[in-house]
């Protein structure tokens, strides 16, 4: 009788626990499906307001939406949120997409010979690519696009006060900070 009551109690506990797990998972599934709907509509080109509490995938979808429409100032806070977030894959993707968007805007400026507004955009793009590569050194698309940005606006060695830290030959290799579309050997 005692054993029977014990097995009854055990079965009841398992039933209760599995029902609790099922209801939690079901609730999660509903939330995730709602978020997926929002991501899909952002991808389809409908702008939606999101909040900081939304999952990072949704934040990234909004960032992608803004970045592909050259709304860089609105995208920057989202990039800050994602780049400091725990999801490394999304941080890399956000930095990369944002850098691509900046580079595209810079190309537009350069095509109409507006050099001054292009330089800071290329510099910011390079910084974003570098941060993406710092997080994921094997990200080939970021390497390729960083190479393009590097040839537009070359890096140059900064003359640091602690001279011993800098290799002496680096000091000689001063680059002018001019954008240049490569047309032949530099």
């Amino acid at each position: 009788m005692r054993l029977r009551r014990l097995t009854l109690f055990a079965t009841g506990t398992v039933l209760f626990a599995s029902l609790a797990a099922a209801s939690w998972l079901g609730a999660r599934l509903i939330v995730v499906e709602r978020d997926n709907g929002l991501i899909a509509s952002l991808n389809a080109g409908h702008d939606l307001a999101i909040s900081a509490e939304d999952p990072p995938e949704l934040v990234f979808a909004r960032l992608h939406f803004l970045a592909t429409r050259d709304r860089l100032d609105e995208a920057q806070p989202l990039l800050n949120q994602l780049a400091g977030g725990p999801d490394r894959r999304l941080a890399v993707a956000a930095l990369y997409d944002m850098a691509n968007a900046r580079l595209r805007v810079a190309f537009n400026h350069l095509e109409s010979s507006r050099i001054d507004p292009a330089i800071p955009l290329v510099r910011l793009a390079k910084d974003n690519y570098r941060r993406a590569l710092t997080l994921d050194p094997g990200f080939w698309d970021a390497k390729y696009n960083l190479d393009i940005a590097m040839r537009l606006v070359r890096d140059f060695p900064q003359i640091e006060l602690e001279g011993e830290e800098l290799p002496p030959e680096a000091v000689k290799k001063l680059w002018t900070d001019l954008p240049g579309l490569p047309r032949g050997l530099p």
Binding site: S18, L19, L25, D35, N36, N43, T68, N100, A142, N145
Partner: peptide
């Protein structure tokens, strides 16, 4: 100077949740 393409946003994975729900 064609850039490599952007990373497109991906949907959240639902398969693990679905599996867990069915299991529960």
């Amino acid at each position: 100077m064609a850039l490599r393409p952007d990373i497109a946003p991906r949907l959240l994975p639902t398969a693990p949740l679905m599996r867990g729900l069915l299991l529960a």
